Each structure stands twice: as C-alpha cells, then as structure tokens.
Amino acid sequence: MARTRDSETEDWGPAGHVPPRQSIVTIYGLYGGAGGNWMSVASLVHLLADLGIDEAAVRSAVSRLKRAGMLESTSRGRAAGYRLSEGAEAMLRNGRERIFQARRATLDEGWVLVVFSVPESERAKRHTLRTELTRLGFGAVSSGVWIAPGHVHDEVEAMLARLQLRSYTDIFRSDYLSVAPDLAAKVRTWWDTESLQALYVRFLATHRPVVERLERGETLSDVEAFVAHVRVLTDWRRLVYLDPGVARELLPAKWSGTEASEVFDELHARLAGPARRHVARVRSR
C-alpha cells in the first residue's frame, strides 16, 4: 500500500500554514545550536509570534513535544526554557544531510530492503518501526517487507540503533532483476508519487513567489527573512522525508521535485544569514 504521510505531518493544514509543533522543531534545528540547543520560553514565544502563532498554541505544542520526548524543561539563571533531548538532537543531526543535500538515486545503485517481524505483544514497537520507515521514505512491498533506494542504508541503520529496533529486522542490499518499465509500475504501488507530485506543486506555489520577489531586487527585513526561512525549511523537511529519492527514470514524466529543490536551495542561501541575525537579537534580550 502506498504511503505519503508520517506521524509528524498529520496536523498540516492549508497551503502556507505551518503547524506550531513543526515550526518549533525547525527553529531548534536551525538556531538551537548557538545556545547549546536551549532556548528560553520568552524567546520561543517571541519567535513563534513572528510566525503568527499565539502563546497558547506555542505552550500546547511544547507540551506535546515534551510528552514525545523531544524537549526537556530546564532553566538558565532565572530564565525558564527548553532544550532538545539527546534523542531529538540525534534525530535532527542525522537529518541534516537529507534536508540540505537531498539526493536522487540512480538506477544502478540498487535497493535496501528491511524485513521485520514484531510480536503482537509488542505492537507499539511495530507501529514505531513502520512510522520511522515511512519517515525515512520507505515504501511497503508487503506488511513486513519495506524498500528504499540503496543510499538510505546508513540512515535506516542509525534509526534502528537509536530506537533499539535492530533485533526485529533483517536488512538486505538488492538489485531489481526485471525490466525497468515493470519497476516503474512497481514504484507507483510502493509510493504514492501522484500525491507527492501534488505536494511539490503546492510547495512551489507557496515559496516560488519569495524567490521572484528577491530576483526583482526586493529586500526582506530580518524578520521577514526569518519567517520565510522557517516556513520554507519546515515545508521542505516534510517533503524530503516523504520523497523516497528513487531514480528520476522511475518517476512520472511531470515531476516538480527538481524545481522545488532549486527553490529551496535558493531561499536557504539568501535567507539564512538575515534570519539568524533576527534570532540572535531576540535571544539576547
């Protein structure tokens, strides 16, 4: 059965809307390192307000992230705040290459197969394993056999070790031995490429106008750059984890992923500096 969503994307709304929880993860991933992955409550509330998210929604999202083991409460002096948990730090660290150096497979690099069996008595672990495989872009060949391009091997090994799920799985490197047109048809059953294409079109409709403004010579304030940077990276993070990164030859003829990648790279290069200046000013108050 084709899959395009994971547990981190279930609360996404209309185009241009970024859920508070996803925005907080992006902010910590982009700017948390400068403060040892710690941020005061006041700074977090201020930055989320810049994104149009009110304080009640911020506190609700933080509570959910704490329950999920992503954030931990800690204070510095008199300032209350939150830091990333060790598990969250590892997850964001492992994801940077995929986000900023997203790559597409070639036909000759093969596949990685994860075969797993989890006892019914440990169904929560089975759910976690399926969720994490989906998040890494795997498609389901059958209920216990999942597939991804070969270059995902290191990421899935790191995930299984981090979550202590390796004992439930066998991992294989493989080649597909039938003809390419048959493989392209299989790809459409393992992944919902039509829905992914629609998400790329939506991404372009949301973020390409910012590129066009910059190309016309318009200047964004640091606050505007921050807002645009968080939004584009949050949207992009979602897509690169849904996109399996299969070879271009196996994708529909009409495919907007390549242009979306160019738009993301352009905006990240132009917005990162002024956005970081804004965050530094907010955190110094």
Rank of each mutant, 00 (worst) to 15 (best):
M1Q: 14
A2V: 11
A2Q: 08
A2S: 11
A2T: 12
A2P: 15
R3W: 10
R5G: 01
E8S: 12
T9Y: 03
D11S: 11
W12I: 00
P14E: 15
A15Y: 00
H17S: 14
V18L: 15
V18F: 12
P19T: 06
G29K: 00
Y31I: 00
G32N: 10
A34G: 02
A34S: 14
G36S: 03
W38G: 01
S40V: 01
A42D: 14
A42S: 14
S43R: 07
L47T: 01
D50P: 03
A57G: 05
A57L: 12
R59V: 06
S63G: 10
K66S: 08
R67I: 02
A68D: 12
A68R: 09
G69R: 13
E72A: 14
S75M: 01
R78K: 13
R78Y: 10
A79V: 02
Y82S: 03
R83I: 00
G87C: 02
A88L: 07
A88P: 04
E89Y: 11
A90N: 07
G95V: 00
R103N: 05
R104V: 14
A105D: 13
D108L: 07
E109N: 03
E109S: 11
W111Y: 15
V112Y: 04
F116V: 10
E122N: 04
R123A: 09
K125W: 04
K125D: 11
R126H: 03
R126A: 10
L129E: 04
T131H: 04
T131K: 02
F138Y: 15
V141I: 09
G144V: 06
V145S: 09
W146Y: 03
P149M: 05
H151N: 06
H151T: 00
H153C: 03
H153V: 06
D154S: 15
V156Y: 07
L160V: 08
A161G: 05
Q164R: 15
Q164E: 15
L165K: 09
S167M: 07
Y168D: 12
D170H: 15
I171Y: 09
L177P: 00
V179K: 10
P181F: 06
P181G: 08
A184E: 13
K186W: 11
W190V: 04
E194V: 13
L199K: 13
L199F: 03
V201D: 09
R202A: 12
R202E: 15
R202P: 00
T206A: 09
V210M: 12
V211N: 05
E212I: 08
R213T: 11
E215W: 09
E215D: 15
R216T: 14
G217P: 10
E218S: 11
E218W: 05
T219F: 09
L220P: 02
V223F: 00
V223L: 08
H229P: 04
H229W: 13
V230S: 04
V230H: 01
W236G: 06
L239F: 05
P244F: 08
V246S: 10
E249Q: 12
L251H: 11
P252F: 13
K254V: 15
W255K: 14
S256D: 15
G257P: 03
T258A: 14
T258D: 14
E259F: 10
E259C: 02
H268W: 12
R270D: 07
A272D: 08
P274V: 03
R276G: 10
R277E: 10
V279W: 02
V279A: 02
A280Q: 10
A280K: 09
R281E: 12
V282A: 12
R283G: 00
R283K: 11
S284G: 01
